[in-house]
Design a protein around this nucleic acid. Structure first.
Length: 670
DNA sequence: TGGGGTGATATTTTT
DNA sequence: TATCACCCCA
């Protein structure tokens, strides 16, 4: 890829006369446009870095962006530049406007596990026992927050008793979060928007701070995020939004691809620039991608092209069942790699659902091919990390009930479920956090002296540790704390396996190493600052570059934004891609975009695979080829597959059902 | 407190 | 069919 910008890219970089929407097709160099534009603003237009904000969705994207800007400008010339995720931007705002929001310093950020636990508890209390529906409730509440709907509005919108009940849980949930001096992920966006709506002077302050706003992956913004963008941009309208409606695959999570069209309405002066030259894929792959996505309705028409040559045919491997699919794909991959002397990391196997990875993993292991499986357990899901994080959270925010409950008896302090129950009842009555209740005289009458003593000792210990963290080096304080609670001994005692205990302790050490590193970078930051930063940052992001030479296995969702020389898109069947639920809900368009995202990941070769049968919930079911296969240019597809012979016999037995169509597709000119 | 038995449940998940 | 969360019991 050359360093020069093409005319469309250049126009997007230079355009500053008003709001701009850059419709950036897959592989059209959108990150380059954003980073070059930042550089242009700073070095050519004399905009101070601190007046520019670029917002992304993932830490990874924001890291990459920062890095590329610093390549263009040098680190010292970008001081003050704000490149962050939406959530980090929200966190910054909240942190600086605490009082107006009714939060206290050191507030906690509840991750989804925390919020689920809270919702579960509330549902148990309010509705007897509907704790098993907590995840649906969490989903609903998050949906409301993403759509900028407050509890009162949710109540108003409720159509039945169940809706009312849900709105009540939402209300209670928010109320409890505030009591615990905590916010959840969605609040990080929602609270700033509410604040800006109600306090013009605060909004003005932030508008004065951010003179130019750039938003990446604009099609993924939800209603609340769009509101935040509109507020910050204000009448100045200095906005560059970059997005691609064809790559909108998160609407099930509240993303509003219509925001692209809304931009047109909300900013009548909106300028639209299309990036249609693709620097990634062969002409044939793009032709296929264009053909497929042509079946979707479009507000903005665009047509990707490339001058990278026409390339190899798209292969379609037809298999007997999912087991054979894995065999054939892996064999094909191995041979291709060997013939072309490629690296493992040149290859990716993409699929619709996580469960599809299994067969492939098995075979890759069998052939000793190193692979990288995206979407494992998050670092923060480990119990030992949760424990330590809970301690750290409690130090900065003693009112954090989740943290309190988690570690009050870990390691053991003889504060059992009975005592906790009594404490909880008491604090409920008083509308206080558990921690605060520990100090109340009235509590004594509700439990044994011994229990009361234990609680008191613990609470005082928390205070002294918090004091230490505040008044000396926070990292030292953390290390002290881990020693103080004898966490290592506790791990060894509680794990049967010494190796596991060591591994867990290693994780804990890694956590402190991270804190140390962050502390070095920002010596002024308090422990609370470090902890909240840590929560928004998925540590597992780190092995991006340390991934090594591995075949990538991932879902289509996870593949967005990535590219590979050779891509295998597997499971091209009805009910899988498009997924069964999407067929029922008639949201085929998004599934088509998902397939589109998969296809456009490929640089040189693309191989699709499908099976005639698949094991599903126990029994084997027949599969039909995905409708998307028929939407591809048939003359560019090359069908192969060894499953055909086997199927010939079955065909008689089954009386030529759908297999006839399959065979039709296997013969060219069918 | 953990392990085993039981029953429900089976897309995608940036923060 | 496999997994996972949950409950109960020792």
């Amino acid at each position: 890829m050359s360093n020069q910008l093409n005319p469309a890219q250049k126009a997007a970089v230079r355009y500053l006369d008003g709001p701009l929407l850059v419709l950036a097709g897959a592989g059209s160099g959108k990150t380059r446009v954003i980073t070059q534009k930042i550089a242009y603003l700073i070095s050519e237009c004399d905009v101070a870095p601190r007046h520019i904000a670029a917002v992304t969705f993932t830490n990874k994207a924001s890291r990459e962006m920062k890095q590329r800007v610093s390549q263009l400008l040098g680190k010292k010339n970008m001081k003050g530049l704000r490149v962050s995720t939406f959530h980090t931007l929200g966190l910054d705002i909240i942190r600086q406007e605490l009082n107006a929001l009714g939060l206290k310093t050191g507030f906690s950020i509840y991750d989804s596990a925390d919020s689920l636990a809270l919702i579960k508890e509330l549902m148990r209390k309010a509705f007897g026992d509907h704790g098993d529906q907590a995840d649906q409730m969490q989903w609903r509440i998050s949906g409301w927050k993403n759509a900028f709907i407050i509890p009162e509005q949710a109540t108003g919108l409720a159509e039945d008793a169940q809706g009312h009940a849900s709105a009540r849980v939402y209300e209670a949930y928010n109320h409890h979060l505030r009591t615990y001096n905590a916010v959840d992920f969605d609040d990080l966006i929602m609270l700033p928007v509410m604040l800006f709506r109600d306090h013009a002077e605060v909004l003005e302050k932030w508008q004065a701070r951010i003179h130019y706003l750039l938003v990446d992956e604009y099609q993924d913004t939800n209603a609340t995020q769009y509101e935040l963008v509109k507020q910050l941009v204000g009448i100045r309208s200095a906005l560059t939004a970059v997005g691609d409606d064809d790559q909108s695959i998160y609407s099930w999570r509240g993303a509003n691809p219509e925001n692209l069209a809304l931009l047109n309405e909300d900013f009548p002066q909106l300028k639209v620039i299309k990036l249609e030259q693709n620097y990634r894929s062969s002409g044939r792959i793009l032709k296929a991608a264009n053909a497929l996505i042509g079946n979707n309705p479009h507000i903005f028409e665009k047509r990707l092209w490339s001058d990278l040559g026409y390339g190899d045919p798209i292969r379609v491997i037809r298999c007997k069942d999912d087991e054979q699919e894995a065999e054939q794909v892996v064999h094909e991959l191995m041979h291709h790699r060997f013939r072309n002397n490629n690296k493992h990391k040149d290859y990716a196997i993409l699929y619709r659902g996580n469960h599809q990875s299994r067969q492939f993993e098995r075979l890759l292991r069998q052939h000793q091919i190193p692979y990288y499986l995206s979407g494992g357990t998050s670092f923060f899901a480990y119990t030992e990390i949760k424990d330590i994080m809970a301690y750290l959270r409690l130090l900065s925010n003693p009112d954090d009930n989740n943290a309190f409950v988690r570690i009050v008896n870990t390691p053991r302090r003889e504060i059992g479920p009975g005592t906790l129950e009594k404490l909880a009842n008491y604090s409920d009555q008083r509308e206080n956090s558990l921690f605060t209740s520990c100090f109340e005289i009235g509590l004594q009458h509700h439990m044994s002296d011994r229990a009361y003593q234990n609680l008191n000792t613990f609470a005082n210990w928390v205070i002294s540790m918090a004091h230490q963290a505040e008044n000396s080096n926070p990292i030292e304080a953390v290390k002290n704390l881990i020693n103080d609670i004898r966490y290592e001994t506790w791990l060894i005692d509680s794990c049967k396996d010494e190796i596991i205990a060591t591994r867990k302790m290693d994780n804990v050490k890694e956590l402190t190493t991270w804190l140390e590193r962050m502390h070095k970078k920002a010596p002024e930051a308090t422990l609370a600052d470090l902890v909240s930063k840590l929560i928004l940052l998925d540590i597992l992001d780190r092995d991006d570059e340390e991934k090594g030479d591995c075949v990538s296995l991932m879902t289509l969702h996870a593949a967005k934004g990535l590219e590979f020389p050779h891509v295998y898109l597997v499971g091209m069947e009805e009910e899988l891609l498009p997924h069964r639920n999407s067929i029922e809900q008639e949201t085929i368009d998004e599934e088509r975009r998902l397939a589109y995202v998969g296809i456009t990941r490929a640089q040189q070769t693309l191989t699709l695979s499908l099976t005639a049968q698949r094991k599903r919930y126990g029994d084997t079911t027949d599969c039909e080829p995905s409708r998307f296969l028929q939407e591809l240019p048939q003359e560019d597809l090359q069908w192969t597959g060894t499953g055909i012979e086997v199927n010939k016999e079955e065909q008689h037995e089954r009386g030529m059902s759908h297999l006839a169509t399959l065979r039709g597709m296997l013969t060219p000119e069918g």
